[in-house]
Design a protein around this nucleic acid. Structure first.
Lengths: 209, 209
DNA sequence: AAATGATGTGAGTAAAAGCTCATGTTCACA
DNA sequence: TGTGAACATGAGCTTTTACTCACATCATTT
């Protein structure tokens, strides 16, 4: 593997056909990640699948890393939108503590059910992209902040617990269990069951004895 | 990256100095994984760090994959020993339901505190080793079976729950949270706190309302 | 229509990394 | 002390892959 770059911005597409090119490249990268995994996702293969020349790819992405980072950001932003919709829905229809938890967990499970293969590959491999504080990291920080903020308002329903610690424990375990949807799992572990179990996990953890 | 092999067994070391060589190679691979990660762990670097020639490495490991699989197996076996010690300790000193949970969780947290960097790299990357049903997979199956078996004996203390599903949820979330020890985390999340929180998580999940 | 810039091409370069093999060295044992 | 087996060496082969560049084509402006 030769050196990889990371730096130096590249052209932004200005014409319509250039936008199509960029999109074809991102679609192709996503497809290869899903179907053949991270290691198979090399720039030549992406260009070929996208039906463009390797040169075109490097017109818009300065490096392989930048391409994958862009894809990860796109994916993360879609995820954030799903979450934000869940937040506004929750604020418009006030519910009980328990129902609110279920509501958010349902959103998380749904989030990981969209393109789960890609989700898995990205969450496995994105950490090693040395692209500084990127959108992905920002989104997960925001999610954590969201959880923490909500916990703060619900202190009355909670056992005595350090909110930072609780946020970490919750975010981590919910994420890990929701990601299970991609792997081999007991057949009975449907999406609905997953929502039930994660709710039980979270509520049991937060509830005073 | 050229073709990788996977197949064809290689010599077993018979003399003492050959055992030293093999060990040096494994130590070197572990060190590089810890300090520079999976991608930096190439066979040439391993051989160099081990102070042996690349040829020697290939005398004992038919491929890079075989080397890393061997390392993973070694690590997994150490882990299994820790767990088995916890099991026998628990059977020798009968405890309450809650204390038993804490006891196992303490063992899990301790397990992940031993060489946590290596632990993290291996659990991130081992899934993609196409080495069939290997020791690693066997160990995690065994652990799950252990948990499931124990849950079965404790039905009386449990809410009504599908044991397969519960096992999955517990194993996954405990593993994920225990792995947090390696990443950036709130400073207050010490090992002791981790044991407390994971116990709360597990007990809250299993306890009838 | 000429000029200018945006977009597209793909053969080719260079470096990294897995792995081989011809050859040399050490050890066990007669 | 000689002989064969085990062990060790490292230059170099080969494939893979990130990336460049000289050039061609398309779009827009004047």
């Amino acid at each position: 593997m030769p050196r990889t770059r990371v730096d130096s911005p590249r052209k932004k597409p200005k014409q319509e056909r250039a936008k199509d090119t960029v999109d074809a490249i991102l679609r192709a990268a996503a497809h290869i990640l899903r179907s053949h995994g991270w290691d198979a996702c090399n720039t030549n293969a992406v260009a070929k699948r996208a039906g463009v020349s390797i040169g075109s790819l490097y017109q818009y992405f300065p490096s392989k890393e930048a391409l994958l980072a862009a894809l990860a950001e796109e994916h993360a932003e879609k995820g954030q939108q799903v979450l934000m919709r869940a937040v506004t829905a929750a604020s418009e229809h006030p519910m009980s503590f328990d129902d609110t938890v279920r509501h958010y967990i349902r959103a998380m499970v749904a989030l990981h059910a969209v393109d789960p293969k890609l989700q898995r590959v990205l969450s496995d491999q994105v950490p090693k992209l040395r692209t500084g504080l990127n959108v992905v990291r920002r989104v997960s920080k925001q999610s954590a902040a969201l959880v923490r903020g909500w916990l703060e308002t619900q202190r009355a329903h909670l056992r005595d617990v350090d909110l930072d610690v609780a946020t970490y424990v919750l975010v981590t375990s919910v994420e890990a269990v929701a990601l299970l949807q991609v792997l081999e799992r007991p057949t009975r572990l449907t999406q609905e069951v997953l929502v039930d179990e994660l709710s039980a996990l979270v509520l049991g953890y937060l509830r005073p004895r």
